[in-house]
């Protein structure tokens, strides 16, 4: 009689132990994966930011001759590119990205005032390519923010927060667009 009860107690404790250990391992691995996914999604943004920065000198060269009255915009674009190339941290790169996106928006908007430029095939190709990169960047920023959001929710929810504290994981920052970047650019004809 007593042996039977002991066997049941042992099996129950065994299942309980296996359950707890498996659950903790799955939380642990899940959090590490989430953290790495954030790094990966940032790296995927960085690739596109670099691609776009590489296209900017060609764009500036193609519009310089036509847009003599927009030297301020072109200077801002060059500055923003330099800021991106000198940026080391993610917030610095994000700030430079916002500057580039905003200036590009202005540049493409004011290009409407220059019919000769709009007829330039090289400019049109660059505009299409850069706009394509901009669209992909928008998707990847959204993806990055979703990854950060998933991670932040996990590390603040029980029981994941216990493991997150053991790993000293803290909240990650989302990729924020500046208020300037969100505004539509007015074009004056």
């Amino acid at each position: 009689m007593a042996i039977g009860i002991w066997i049941i107690v042992l099996v129950v404790l065994g299942l309980f132990g296996i359950g707890i250990v498996s659950y903790v391992i799955s939380i642990f691995n899940g959090l590490i994966r989430l953290k790495n996914d954030i790094k990966k999604s940032w790296a995927n943004i960085d690739v596109l930011l670099t691609q776009r920065a590489d296209e900017l000198p060609k764009l500036i060269a193609s519009v310089k001759g036509y847009m003599k009255h927009e030297s301020k915009t072109l200077t801002e674009l060059t500055k923003a590119r330099t800021a991106f190339l000198n940026a080391k941290t993610m917030p610095e790169k994000a700030a430079a990205d916002n500057m580039i996106s905003g200036t590009l928006k202005t540049l493409f908007a004011v290009s409407e005032n220059y019919p000769n430029l709009k007829a330039n095939e090289n400019f049109m190709q660059l505009q299409t390519r850069i706009s394509g990169i901009e669209n992909e960047l928008a998707d990847r920023r959204e993806f990055y923010n979703d990854s950060v959001n998933n991670y932040n929710i996990r590390i603040q929810s029980f029981p994941d927060l216990v493991v997150a504290r053991m790993l000293a994981y803290t909240e990650e920052q989302m990729f924020k667009a500046t208020e300037e970047g969100k505004k539509d650019v007015k074009v004056e004809f």
């Binding site: 359950g19 659950y23 799955s26 899940g30 994966r33 669209n135 992909e136 998707d139 993806f143 979703d146």
Partner: peptide, 25 residues
């Protein structure tokens, strides 16, 4: 044991955001 594998799969799906096809990495 299988229950834990299903749980792991569920967490994996929850943790991966849906990508737009234009920008899949």
């Amino acid at each position: 044991i299988k229950g834990f594998f299903w749980l792991k799969k569920k967490r994996l799906i929850e943790n991966i955001p849906t990508s737009k096809i234009r920008s899949i990495a």
